[in-house]
Every structure is written in structure tokens, then in C-alpha cells.
């Protein structure tokens, strides 16, 4: 009987033989170990972190830098000193305040306050709008650009007209009487006996000097249209309205005058910037809307 006869091993335990059962078992074990390690790392890791604070920062809070320039500005604002003149307590106080602020900001993000707090939402919208507008706000257009804008929008840079008009109301009468009335009312001051004779009274719609827009509101479109074309010291023709015949006497009429460029320049610069800002905002809003997935309820489409 041979003495070197090998012990008979199960097929899957014999390393000299290929076994698909063994291969699958080992592969499964490897996958399970890999998943376990990945899961452990995922739920326990604190992320990659650096040990040193970059030169341009004064601290890292959960790897979020606190800028040195912000720190110096705050130090200057609060205590009126720079870093070399600040006491240790002042430096520490400002630094601790900034770290505390950063921690609370990070906590706010974790809590997703922007989803629930209207003030945070509003502040975020304002901040994003400011970010979008930044280039337009800080850009300084040259004089030629401003002049171009002034010329293109010349209708904006005019003074508001001013009129002082008296509005007389008379009962309807024959043309002869009306012609005499028009002649009699051609004065800033009408004797009371003349008014009594004509049965005329002042409507009281206007009082002294008024800007055009105010006179238009007070007189109404029809009377204002007639008044606008009157020169100083002239009367309008009779204007029939529901409450009688109106006759306007123009005391003074200062028509709108275009502002020259020098006078209008501050307004032109402001309008130019506002226009640029609105364009940037509209462009960004359009871009954000385009890339967003917005679904609107059926009843509001």
C-alpha cells in the first residue's frame, strides 16, 4: 500500500485545482470588505484637511477660510487700530467674533434657512443681484459713451414745464356774448362786477405755479391740451365741458427746456449704470431660468 498517498481534499479546497465555487466566494468576500471600508470612511471621515493656515487668511473654520483683509478691516472699524497696534484682547475678540459668525453661517447652511426664512431668502436675492451688478456699478464709462447715451435718450433730460393758468367757467351763451367774455377775461385780475355780469366763476382746479404733470391732473386732458399751447397773457377759445364753457387765461407758461450735457451728466451717468445693471440682471435671470427645471401648476400656466 503506497505511503505517500495524498489526503483527498474537497474539490474547492484544493489549490492545485481550479474551482469556480472558491473564486466566487473570494470575490464576494472582497466586495463585502470593500463596501464595509467605504461605508466606514463615508460616515466617519472629516474630509481632507490642511494643518496650516494660508498666509492670506487668519483662520480656517471647517476648512472655510476667514480672510486676513476682512479681519484687518473689522479690527480697524471696531477699534480704529491696525494689527501692530491692537492689543492681544482686541485681536482675540475680533477673531473669536469672526469664527463664531462663520460657525453660525455654516450652521445656517446646514439648517437650510434659505428654504424657510423669508429674510434670509431676501438677503440672498439682494446679495446675488449685487454680485451680478458689481461690474456695472464699479465701471466708469468714458465721456463719449455718456454723451452717446445722453443723445440717444435726450427726451429724458428736459425740465418739467411750469404753468400758472386760470380756469374760468361760464354758462353757454350766444357767440357774441362769448366773444365779449373772452375779451373781458384776458387779464390776470378780473373785476368782480365783470365776473358777475358774465356769470363767470373760477373753477379752482389750479393754484399758482404748477408743474405740467400736476396741471394735467388738475385740469384734465382736454383743458391741459389747450393750456399747454398758450403763451403768457393769452386766453384760450371756449371749451365746452359738462359743467359749462371753460376759458383758460395763461398767466405764465414755462415750457420744458432740454438740459445741456453738463447739467444732465450726473443723471445720465446714473441712468447709464441703471440700464447696464438691469441688462445684467435680466441676462442672469434668463440664464438661470433656462437652465432650471421649473414646473408650474396647471391652473397657473
Amino acid at each position: 500500500m503506497p505511503t505517500d498517498e495524498k489526503v483527498k481534499l474537497p474539490h474547492w479546497r484544493d489549490p492545485t485545482r481550479v474551482s469556480s465555487v472558491r473564486s466566487f466566494a473570494l470575490m464576494t468576500l472582497g466586495a463585502l470588505i470593500g463596501l464595509f471600508l467605504a461605508g466606514y470612511s463615508l460616515f466617519t471621515a472629516r474630509g481632507a484637511s490642511t494643518l496650516s493656515v494660508p498666509a492670506e487668511d487668519v483662520a480656517l473654520v471647517n476648512q472655510q477660510p476667514i480672510s486676513r483683509s476682512d479681519y484687518l478691516i473689522l479690527l480697524q472699524t471696531l477699534y480704529g487700530v491696525d494689527l501692530s497696534h491692537a492689543t492681544r484682547e482686541q485681536r482675540q475678540k475680533v477673531l473669536n467674533d469672526m469664527i463664531r459668525e462663520e460657525l453660525f453661517v455654516q450652521r445656517g447652511k446646514e439648517l437650510d434657512l434659505a428654504s424657510s426664512d423669508p429674510e434670509v431668502r431676501s438677503a440672498l436675492v439682494n446679495a446675488v443681484e449685487l454680485e451680478i451688478s458689481e461690474d456695472a456699478i464699479t465701471a466708469q464709462p468714458n465721456e463719449a459713451t455718456l454723451r452717446d447715451y445722453y443723445t440717444t435718450h435726450a427726451d429724458r433730460y428736459v425740465s418739467e414745464g411750469i404753468m400758472n393758468v386760470r380756469d374760468w367757467v361760464l354758462p353757454a351763451g350766444d357767440p357774441g356774448v362769448m366773444a365779449a367774455a373772452l375779451q373781458a377775461l384776458k387779464s390776470a385780475v378780473i373785476p368782480s362786477e365783470t365776473l358777475a355780469r358774465l356769470h363767470a366763476h373760477e373753477s379752482g382746479k389750479t393754484q399758482g405755479d404748477e408743474f405740467y404733470f400736476a396741471a394735467k391732473i388738475h385740469l384734465g386732458d382736454q383743458l391741459f391740451a389747450a393750456a399747454r399751447d398758450l403763451s403768457d397773457g393769452t386766453v384760450s377759445g371756449p371749451i365746452q365741458l359738462n359743467d359749462g364753457v371753460h376759458v383758460l387765461y395763461m398767466v405764465t407758461n414755462k415750457r420744458p427746456v432740454p438740459f445741456d450735457f453738463a447739467k444732465a451728466r450726473p443723471q445720465v451717468l446714473n441712468d447709464y449704470r441703471s440700464h447696464a445693471i438691469e441688462q445684467l440682471k435680466a441676462g442672469d435671470a434668463s440664464f438661470l431660468r433656462k437652465r432650471a427645471n421649473v414646473r408650474v401648476a396647471d391652473d397657473l400656466r
Partner: peptide, 18 residues
Amino acid sequence: IAYGRQGVCPAWIKKLSA
């Protein structure tokens, strides 16, 4: 007073260094 002024200092915080 009549035509207003809208002068505001722009935010330079991100354009200029401290």
C-alpha cells in the same frame, strides 16, 4: 431737489485691496 440725485458710492470691497 426738483430732478433728484442718485449718487451712491459703489461697493469697492472686491475691486480694491484693503
